[in-house]
Design a binder for these strands. Structure first.
Lengths: 120, 120
DNA sequence: TTTCATAGTATCCTTTTTGTAACTGGTATC
DNA sequence: GATACCAGTTACAAAAAGGATACTATGAAA
């Protein structure tokens, strides 16, 4: 079978792929982060909007956004509006996740199509 | 901001991206599935091997493999060997996940590189 | 003054996930 | 027979994730 181009030689199989995937999952794993990012790709959004859009409770949303902010994927901007509003937007760095998001988007679509096939 | 090509018109933002991502996460979300698939891309492997390779306990591994098998991503083959061995291998369908896995692999590598940057 | 909207936080609870350790059953080896 | 390896399963525990509800604080509108 095809081996990956692996710089470090070791035990039996290169650990880099496994590690890389795990690193990625550490940052955008879980139920919500990629969903939130994919929603924010349509443009910045306020807290409540995002909450409604993603159908996620404030508590979880708050936590997820903090984590995304910590990892430099999202910015939080407080606006001087009538009731103070807060805008969340993607950072340029988050663009590096485009491939991942697009790939998952495409796969999800195709998979649904496949699963929906009439009793094949 | 750019809108996605959306067939169904609705509330405010197209739900298809969100749904597609969630569909994907339903199948390969969680801590292990993508890791296991990425390991199996190097070739079929037996239960214990996989357990050691991924550093995952038999209980979890068993459950994850069952779910992957249910979703048509992995095959389970019992071999008539001295002590019975069981081989797990990827299905052709799992190849459709290549883009996702490669994208996550690349991103994880790049992200680690970025995070490791000496006190930038 | 009461009410509503904003952006969260606090509290409590349930569900899901993950892990550990021990154990089954089969075959082979010592 | 005792031991060891394989592929799991079972029972139990711990932790993480997720969710519901209520609440804070601010300011504007009714």
């Amino acid at each position: 079978m095809k081996k990956h181009n692996c710089i470090v030689g070791d035990e039996s199989v290169c650990p880099k792929v496994k590690l890389s995937i795990q690193d990625t999952l550490d940052v955008v794993g879980g139920k919500w982060k990629l969903v939130l990012i994919s929603i924010l790709r349509d443009g910045k959004m306020r807290f409540r909007e995002l909450s409604r859009e993603a159908d996620i409770s404030p508590r979880i949303l708050s936590k997820e956004l903090q984590e995304l902010e910590m990892n430099g994927l999202v910015t939080r901007t407080v606006c001087n509006t009538k009731p103070v509003t807060v805008e969340y937007a993607l950072t340029p760095y988050s663009d590096t996740l485009s491939e991942v998001i697009i790939a998952m988007h495409k796969w999800g679509q195709e998979h649904r199509r496949k699963v929906m096939e009439p009793s094949l």
